[in-house]
Design a protein around this nucleic acid. Sequence first.
DNA 1: GAGAGCATGTAAGAGGTTACATGATTCC
DNA 2: GGAATCATGTAACCTCTTACATGCTCTC
Lengths: 178, 178
Amino acid sequence: MSLAHAILGFLQKQNMTGYDLKTSCFDKCLAHLWPADQAHIYKTLEKLLEQDWITCNVEIQQDRPNRKVYSLTAAGNAELLRWLQCSQSLPTIREPLLVQLFFATQLPNEAIVNLLEKQLAAHYEKVNDCQTIKLSPFNETLADREQLVYQLIQELIMRREQIYIDWLKSTIELLQLE
Amino acid sequence: MSLAHAILGFLQKQNMTGYDLKTSCFDKCLAHLWPADQAHIYKTLEKLLEQDWITCNVEIQQDRPNRKVYSLTAAGNAELLRWLQCSQSLPTIREPLLVQLFFATQLPNEAIVNLLEKQLAAHYEKVNDCQTIKLSPFNETLADREQLVYQLIQELIMRREQIYIDWLKSTIELLQLE
DNA sequence: GAGAGCATGTAAGAGGTTACATGATTCC
DNA sequence: GGAATCATGTAACCTCTTACATGCTCTC
């Protein structure tokens, strides 16, 4: 249910369209915490409407497609607050590379090293990406408290990446020595 | 597609039933790399049959339900080998706790600390679990190479957990000071 | 007698992705 | 002229989970 609640969370800060949510919120702030697809966001908005947790107001535009601007209802706000206090389950992590490695003992070392190197390159790219994320979607000046929380989140994400990078590097070295 | 290929991988080592795959393989070896549900395993076995990557042989039993023993075909083996050489995408990690924290600045510090402490307890439990995983489902003596790979995988999993634990601990301390 | 283990599955739904379609405007 | 931006969506599909159902045996 995190996608639905993340949408509620963003709408609490500011009224927005599905497009805004995708481009300014999910892709910018939550890309590394909760990636979300455009089609999925639109579908979820409909469900939230059905639940009466949000409402929709159409702004007619001449030059461009009309905007469906969503906003949080009182019920939606209450639901968000309820969810914010529920303890969440641990992240489910599925690791394609490690599954592959698990069965890859039948491959020669060079083939395995090759796979690891590609993954390492992808992680380097991702770290680059992570460094440029902006955790606040709006141009407000943030309270100290918010800034602190955002910094903490960013740090966990970076550490998480660093672990993979370190592990990949040392594993590649090890296999090359053999 | 990792679930399908993991099944091929296990069947390459030994013929098995869906039940065996769930209880001896996925739950024991891949629990922290690629958790898999029983219903999902059965459905995937059917798809693999349709593709002719596996075949099924029914063993009739008197006292117990019959066993559908699956085995890898030559085509299945080829597919596994092909997949083992494809570079995999990075793991998609979705973090319910971090999303929650992202929106939780409206909660008092104690409420946040409470959430973090629950998550920390869950991670401690998981680390315990991870320490008891046995990466080989069979009672064979392993080649050095396999043993090395399994050790490396285990280490990455443990480090991944440790990061979360360290982060949660220091974040709790920080918030309690405020 | 209750519960765990063996072994099969189905049905329904939640969650998520990919690809396609529209149509105007602005920038290179 | 071609690509990007704005803004909407749909359809099909894949992945995964939850809950239910059956029925026998062995152990506590």
